[in-house]
Amino acid sequence: MTRKKISERRIAKSLDVSQPAVHKWVYGKALPRLDKFCQLCVILDTSPNELLGWKT
């Protein structure tokens, strides 16, 4: 997660998940649970649409 300069480790700690889990999300090998996804949007200060790469 270099776009906002937040490390995978820091995100993992904030979401109470493992760093390898966040790494899998970043590289599209897994998806977070909905509750973690919503928290991730808050942490990254972005909308769900933007995080998913959808154009609005």
Rank of each mutant, 00 (worst) to 15 (best):
Q39Y: 04
W54P: 00
K13G: 03
T46N: 06
Y27N: 13
G53K: 11
F37K: 06
K55D: 14
E8C: 07
A12F: 07
R3I: 12
C38Y: 09
E8P: 03
G53L: 12
K55T: 12
T56M: 06
V42K: 15
K36N: 14
E8A: 15
L31V: 11
T2R: 14
T2K: 14
I43T: 00
E50N: 11
L15T: 07
Q39G: 01
M1S: 13
Q39N: 11
L40A: 02
V42W: 04
Q19P: 05
P48M: 00
N49C: 07
L51D: 01
S47G: 05
P20D: 10
C38N: 10
L52S: 04
P48C: 01
P32F: 08
S47C: 03
I6T: 04
P48H: 01
P20F: 10
V42Y: 08
K5C: 03
S18T: 15
Q39C: 07
T46I: 13
K5A: 06
S14D: 13
L51C: 02
E50G: 02
D45Y: 00
D45P: 01
S7Q: 05
P32C: 08
S47I: 05
I11D: 07
H23C: 09
N49M: 12
V26W: 06
K24T: 07
A12D: 07
P32L: 10
F37C: 06
K36W: 02
A30C: 07
V22L: 09
K29I: 05
R9M: 10
R3E: 15
S7P: 03
R9T: 13
L40K: 02
V42C: 04
L15S: 10
Y27H: 15
Q19L: 00
I11E: 05
F37G: 07
A21P: 02
S18Y: 08
W54M: 13
V17N: 08
K24P: 00
S7V: 01
D45I: 01
A30P: 02
R33P: 04
V22C: 07
F37D: 05
L34M: 09
R3C: 06
G53Y: 10
E50Q: 14
I11C: 08
D45H: 11
Q19W: 03
L44K: 02
V26F: 09
D16G: 13
V17G: 08
R9G: 04
N49L: 14
K24R: 15
K5S: 09
P48V: 01
L52K: 09
T2P: 05
S18W: 06
M1D: 12
